[in-house]
Amino acid sequence: MVQYTLAQCPEVVLTVSGKDSTKARDKAMDQLMELMDAGKLPTELSDGFGPQQLIEVKEQVSDTAGDEDAVTQAIQTLSNLATLKLKVQESRAEALKVRAQVDILFSDKSVSEEEITSLKDGFKVLKTFAQANLRYQEARSKAEDARAVLDRALKSPEES
């Protein structure tokens, strides 16, 4: 079955058997002519209106598949946020210790080679924390949308 409508009158739907073809469009035109002859077409069509001007009505694809994909993506986003949050929490204390040591580079006080070596090793920790924290902040803003998607998916029909 194929369905057609008119740009001038989208509420009119003409259904014919088969798939979209010249023959199907001709059958739809026959139905359209019958509607016009019976005075049941709520609009006037211009001269020269032909079967090629019929608009095929595509069947509405269920939004369920799209919604399921959105929920899956939302769960993945929230899982990523959880992983990043743990990573940030685990490295925060050590990164803050290293950050406090950075200030010795800006003082006039002399520092030992061990302090500098320790500080250079600490830069790796600082870098790891800072990058994880930036990714966490970005993931958190994306997760707001994911949380909203999840909330809509979890809403029971009675709450609508």
Score class of each variant (00 low, 15 high):
Q3F: 01
Y4H: 02
Q8L: 06
C9R: 03
C9P: 00
C9W: 03
V13C: 00
V13Q: 09
L14T: 03
T15P: 03
V16T: 00
S21V: 05
T22Y: 01
K23F: 01
A24I: 00
R25S: 03
D26N: 06
K27V: 01
Q31P: 02
M33Y: 10
L35V: 05
D37T: 11
D37R: 09
G39E: 07
K40Q: 07
L41M: 02
P42T: 05
P42N: 03
T43D: 03
L45Q: 03
G48C: 09
G48K: 14
F49R: 04
F49W: 08
F49M: 06
Q53M: 05
E56A: 06
E56F: 02
E56D: 01
V57W: 02
V57N: 02
K58A: 09
E59M: 01
E59S: 00
T64F: 12
A65L: 15
D67F: 07
E68H: 15
E68Y: 15
T72W: 11
Q73E: 15
I75G: 08
I75L: 14
Q76H: 13
S79W: 04
N80Y: 06
L81P: 05
L84N: 04
L84M: 06
K85G: 08
L86W: 02
V88S: 06
V88A: 11
Q89G: 06
Q89W: 09
Q89M: 11
S91R: 02
S91A: 06
A95W: 11
L96T: 13
V98I: 15
A100R: 15
Q101C: 06
Q101I: 07
I104D: 08
D108N: 12
D108C: 08
D108W: 05
K109R: 10
S112I: 02
K120A: 15
D121S: 09
G122R: 06
F123D: 03
K124P: 07
V125A: 04
V125Y: 02
T128L: 10
T128M: 09
Q131D: 15
A132M: 07
N133M: 11
N133F: 15
L134Q: 15
R135G: 04
Y136E: 08
E138I: 14
A139P: 12
R140M: 08
S141F: 13
S141V: 14
K142E: 12
K142N: 13
E144T: 14
A148D: 10
A148F: 12
V149P: 08
V149N: 03
L150P: 09
D151H: 07
A153H: 13
L154M: 11
K155E: 10
K155I: 07
S156V: 04
P157D: 13
E159A: 10
